[in-house]
Amino acid sequence: MASQRIFQLGLRRVAAPSLKMQPAGRMAQRRLAATKHASQSEAAEILAKQRIYRPVSPHLAIYRPQITWYGSVLGRITGLTLSGSLYLFGIAYLIAPYTGWHMETQSMVAAVAAWPAAVKMGVKAFFAFPFFYHCLNGLRHLSWDMGFGFKNQQVIRSGWGVVALSVLGGLYYTFIG
């Protein structure tokens, strides 16, 4: 075994002379850096030449939009909508005693009861659609975390399924619930 190891190390030294033995018996590569002092204009010119050969990331405009894009954007927007509304309500509830606002349950129920039916349905829809989408998309991501549904067709079907079920859930809650 030791003779094989010695033979391998000898071959490595012959094949790659830039590699050097380290104290722990490992090989490490040595690279000698060639540097020279360059003025600002020369440095800018070198950098401009290097940028020509760098790979450029394609812009989103060249791709065909997919349900995964829309799903990701909608998931973030619905999360911000729901959490932002919760934070605003929470802050208003906490500062209500200092500002003279009446945010007790009875006051809020009476205020909402006085709203026209169209306004009530609009507020319900404003919260229902993001709520159902965010919850269902979260279940979709949870299934992905467990390793299910990663094939392209499954991802597309589950994306459109989440959209359809969230529309149905939002409409049900807005008009019937």
Rank of each mutant, 00 (worst) to 15 (best):
W144Y: 15
S143E: 06
F175D: 00
R30W: 00
G147A: 05
S143D: 06
A2I: 12
H37P: 04
G169M: 01
F150Y: 13
G25A: 03
S41N: 10
P65I: 12
M21E: 15
T99W: 13
A61Y: 15
M21Q: 12
A164D: 00
Q154E: 15
S41C: 05
A118H: 08
W144A: 15
Y70A: 14
I91L: 10
L171Y: 10
L171C: 09
G170H: 04
A92Y: 09
I67R: 07
L32F: 00
M121P: 00
G169T: 02
L80I: 06
W115D: 07
R13V: 02
R76C: 10
A117G: 02
S3P: 02
T174M: 05
I91N: 05
G170M: 03
L86D: 04
A125N: 02
R157V: 06
I67F: 06
K36Q: 11
H134L: 00
F132R: 05
Q29V: 11
M146R: 07
L86E: 07
F131Q: 11
I77M: 15
L88K: 09
R76M: 14
R54V: 08
I46Q: 08
S72L: 12
I95W: 11
A117K: 04
F148W: 12
L82R: 04
F175W: 03
R13A: 07
E45I: 02
M121Q: 00
H134S: 01
A96K: 12
